[in-house]
Amino acid sequence: MRETIGARPEKSSKAAVGRAGEEAAAAYLAEAGLVVERRNWRCRSGELDLIARDGDILVFVEVRSRTSPSRFGEAVEAITPRKCRQVRELAAIYLRTTGAAADSVRFDVVAVTLRGDGDAAAVRHVPNAF
């Protein structure tokens, strides 16, 4: 058995699940008629997963991904009140710093359940989630 110093396979696995979930979420939203404008927008305070447009509405999308079956529960259950506050604060920063125009904003959640091969088994979109 060979050991790699400093390697964290569980983190890379988690990152791969997150990337696959965001890809599935973006594809699902595009099929539903939304236009994904930004992915993984970052600032000092955190990251917004997806920013999309639904007509005149600017939609901030939090993506949660899980593998199936997950011992940690359903993906949508991972959205805590603290996370909702953080996404709202990040959205305000995004609007201030980018000057993005929107008649209104909305906060959605897309929960993705992935199979072992990384393909989406289920995608659940919750508009106006918080």
Rank of each mutant, 00 (worst) to 15 (best):
D108V: 05
R44S: 15
A101G: 13
G21Q: 02
A102T: 09
R39C: 02
E22M: 07
R53C: 13
D49P: 15
E89C: 04
I51C: 08
R115L: 11
T97I: 11
Y28S: 12
G55C: 09
D56S: 14
V123Y: 10
F72C: 01
D54Y: 05
G18K: 01
S12G: 00
S70Q: 04
Y28P: 07
F72A: 10
R71Q: 06
A25Y: 07
T113R: 04
V59A: 03
G21D: 01
G55S: 10
E62P: 03
A78W: 03
R85L: 01
T113L: 02
R42E: 15
A122K: 15
A75I: 01
R44N: 13
G33P: 08
A129F: 15
R88F: 14
A129D: 14
C43R: 15
V109H: 02
R19S: 02
F60K: 13
R19M: 02
E77L: 01
V63L: 06
H125Y: 14
A78D: 03
L34Q: 05
A27K: 15
G99W: 08
V123T: 09
A111C: 03
V109W: 02
R38G: 00
A27F: 15
T98P: 12
V76F: 03
R64W: 04
L95C: 05
D117N: 15
R64F: 05
S13N: 02
A92V: 11
R66V: 06
G46E: 11
L90W: 06
G33R: 15
G21N: 01
E37K: 00
R71H: 06
E37S: 00
D117T: 15
N40T: 13
V76Q: 07
D103G: 09
R96F: 07
H125I: 11
V76P: 00
V35N: 04
D56P: 13
A27P: 09
T80S: 05
L58C: 08
I79E: 04
I79Q: 01
A25L: 02
S13E: 05
T113Q: 05
R71G: 07
L50Y: 14
G116V: 13
D103M: 07
E77A: 08
A26E: 10
T67E: 11
V35T: 10
V36C: 00
A129R: 10
D108E: 12
R44F: 10
A121H: 11
R66P: 02
C84Y: 01
I51Y: 12
D117W: 15
A129P: 12
W41T: 04
F72S: 09
I79D: 01
R53T: 11
D54T: 01
S12W: 08
V123K: 14
A120M: 12
N128S: 12
